[in-house]
C-alpha cells in the first residue's frame, strides 16, 4: 500500500498544468473569479483561491485572457474570457493531453501482452 501522502503528492504533480487548460476552456464563456473557482471545483479541478486569482492575472498578462469590469450589478466584478491566443494555446494543450493519454494506453497495453 502506497502511503496517502506520497499518492496525493504525485497526483498534485500530475495535475499541476491542467488547471490552466481547464481555465482556458471554461472561460470561453466570460466568468468572474469566484464563479470560476466554483465551476472548476464542481468539474473536479479543485484549486485554491489564492492560487487561482493570481493565476488569472498572470494569464491575462500573457495575453491568453482578456478582462472586463462588469458594473451592471450591485457588486462590480472582473470578468475574464479566453482570447484568440488563449484558444490557440488550449487547442495545443488539449492535443498534447490526448497524445499523452494515447501513449499511456499504449504503454499499458504493451505491458499486458
Amino acid at each position: 500500500m502506497v502511503e496517502q501522502e506520497i499518492v496525493s503528492g504525485h497526483i498534485q504533480e500530475l495535475r499541476r498544468g491542467t488547471v490552466v487548460l481547464a481555465c482556458l476552456i471554461v472561460l470561453r464563456e466570460p466568468e468572474y473569479g469566484y464563479a470560476l473557482l466554483e465551476t472548476l471545483e464542481r468539474l473536479g479541478f479543485p484549486v485554491d483561491a489564492n492560487t487561482l486569482y493570481p493565476l488569472l492575472r498572470r494569464l491575462e498578462k500573457q495575453g491568453l485572457l482578456t478582462s472586463d469590469w462588469n458594473t451592471d450589478q450591485a457588486r462590480p466584478r472582473k470578468f475574464y474570457a479566453t482570447s484568440a491566443e488563449g484558444r490557440e494555446l488550449s487547442d495545443v494543450l488539449s492535443a498534447d493531453w490526448a497524445s499523452l493519454q494515447n501513449s499511456i494506453r499504449t504503454l499499458e497495453e504493451g505491458d499486458n501482452s
Binding site: Y53, R75, K78
Partner: peptide, 17 residues
C-alpha cells in the same frame, strides 16, 4: 486599485456563498 476591487468582490462572493 484593480487588485483591491477584484479581491474585495471575490471575498464578498465567497462570504455570501
Amino acid at each position: 486599485n484593480d487588485i483591491e476591487r477584484e479581491l474585495r468582490a471575490s471575498i464578498d462572493d465567497a462570504m455570501e456563498a
